[in-house]
Write a protein that binds this DNA or RNA. Structure first.
Lengths: 137, 137
DNA sequence: ATCAATAATAGGAATCCTTACTGATATGGA
DNA sequence: TCCATATCAGTAAGGATTCCTATTATTGAT
């Protein structure tokens, strides 16, 4: 349509929509969720394309992925952060990461391991569920 | 066969062998691994039985489970510990957990969350892979 | 704009892990 | 022994993800 763009390097509409879907939510979406989102713009998109592009975006470092309850979830927030998950309602919340070095990491380094990163997730009851917890058991 | 045991509470040979398989290794085994191990003693055991008993043992609190690379892994070490995983060779190592309270946990509590536990995993290069890393890229 | 080369796509089949189902078997108590 | 109940082996079914192939889109050069 627009022949003036000479430098466009192999970025398809599908790829752009996949990235946009993940990066405009904070819900740590699954592939299925992304599929539904992209489908609203591009009804003929296939699930395989969603998976392939999610994979590629992770490899390129533009997304991160992690597993949870048997599903792979994706996250466009590359700022380092930890998680809190509520065991009752399933809320999965980001926690900004302070620049502290954990004692366990110091110990690993002292033993000769090259620590490159970490994943840290707390679980328990969120504020809302905590209020209902004492009365409902 | 042996009517003298009156108090045996519904513990089958299969269940015992499943627990034994997990509790005598440090390898965080998968269901498949446990299946192979139990099969050496009980060749006719079925994979469904392995899954069912692993699930039950987790519910009873005798085992823990977690996901990794699309597989569920089991662990009989109920002592709290964190993990280190080597991104090169796949080593998954336990790290004993010191009784420190992490700053992030303190912050969560201060905000009204009831923190019940955590999972913490570091990743990087183990000692062995680190030595090979500089020369092999 | 047209052409050839290359890469990505849609659609669906295949795969892998896990769970669910079913008839058979073992266990514990009366 | 006889009954009630739970677990089992075997297998079918399920769900998430990957793989395959013909088709379509994109790129660079003419």
């Amino acid at each position: 349509m627009d022949a003036t763009r000479r430098t466009a390097r192999r970025s398809t509409r599908q790829q752009r929509l996949v990235f946009e879907a993940v990066s405009t939510t904070r819900s740590h979406p699954t592939a299925e969720w992304v599929y539904e989102a992209v489908r609203r713009e591009l009804p003929r998109v296939s699930l395989g394309t969603i998976y392939r592009n999610l994979q590629r975006l992770v490899e390129e470092g533009r997304l991160r992925s992690f597993e949870r309850a048997g599903l792979t979830r994706y996250d466009a927030d590359l700022e380092l952060h930890d998680h809190f998950s509520c065991v009752r309602c399933g809320l999965l919340m980001d926690i900004p990461r302070a620049p502290e070095v954990l004692p366990a990491e110091r110990r690993l380094r002292a033993r000769g391991f090259a620590v490159e990163g970490r994943t840290l997730e707390f679980h328990g009851l969120c504020r809302k569920c905590r209020r209902g917890a004492s009365s409902n058991g």
